[in-house]
């Protein structure tokens, strides 16, 4: 049952029609990587890669996560197909957790394709990119953390997508740049510390610093960020599972 829940959801998430826009964006990252070499020819390949990764790939991770995670429950409620799932002899928590795991896998795959294509664009071949392993690890943890957060948001709020997008592009862009230590409250800052990239943007234009979240020095270490993201994920998924088991999910407009 668990395997079926996971793989059937993954199959749906990786449907070509659903995957295509993300693949196009991954190629856009690759094209930007190639272009960056001409825009900033004095920067090292690692710096060029880092700039595009933080501007595009890691930002898209949050967007992808918002799109895929809201599909787990919110989309089923909006499409009114949730009724078929909730009247089956499957514990609700299991339904939620395995569909969430499938969405995390899909988001990671999309992010990984972006990182690999960007590496190919900047380095010529992904195998030449020493930063890629750390990035894949960071992308996986990011998919888990964003997914867990957006899952809870999608269960607790109507119009969850708007909230998720505000978080992804508002909170996650502004908080890492704020003074003090508030950047601890940003998943993006933790991903930066796990990815351990050079920070070329700190000496670059302000706009670039802002977009890549590097206006302030990030004092977080991978050792700190890793447990924080893991604990955050486990706690949020546990709360979501409890929430989904105890609250009603019925398309409201159908209520008589």
């Amino acid at each position: 049952m668990e395997g079926f829940l996971y793989f059937s959801s993954l199959k749906e998430f990786l449907r070509p029609g659903r995957l295509l826009p993300w693949i196009v964006l991954a190629f856009a990252a690759m094209a930007l990587g190639v272009a960056w070499k001409h825009l900033d020819p004095n920067a090292s390949q690692a710096e060029q890669y880092s700039n595009v990764a933080f501007i595009l790939v890691f930002r898209l991770l949050a967007l992808t996560s918002a799109v895929y995670t809201t599909a787990i429950v919110s989309q089923e409620v909006e499409q009114k197909t949730i009724v078929y799932l909730l009247t089956r002899p499957v514990p609700r928590w299991k339904l939620l957790v395995f569909r969430w795991l499938a969405s995390v896998t899909a988001v990671f795959i999309v992010g990984a394709i972006g990182a690999v294509l960007l590496s190919a664009g900047v380095y010529g071949s992904p195998s030449k990119n020493d930063l890629l392993t750390n990035d894949l690890w960071a992308l996986f943890l990011g998919a888990c953390a964003y997914g867990a957060l957006f899952l809870l948001v999608s269960l607790a709020f109507n119009r969850a997508m708007i909230i998720c997008l505000l978080f992804a592009f508002g909170w996650e862009t502004s908080v890492p740049n704020m003074p003090g230590e508030i950047y601890y409250a940003s998943i993006f800052s933790h991903l930066q510390s796990i990815a351990q990239h050079p920070s070329p943007a700190q000496s670059g234009p302000k706009a670039l610093q802002l977009i890549s979240g590097e206006m302030n020095a990030n004092a977080l270490s991978a050792k700190t960020s890793l447990p924080i993201l893991l604990i955050l994920t486990v706690v949020l998924v546990a709360i979501s599972a409890w929430w989904f088991t105890h609250f009603e999910y019925v398309p409201r407009e159908d209520a008589e």
Partner: peptide
């Protein structure tokens, strides 16, 4: 429909 939703445990 409300009665059926109650019986089916949706609400």
């Amino acid at each position: 429909s409300t009665m059926l939703r109650l019986i089916t445990g949706q609400i």
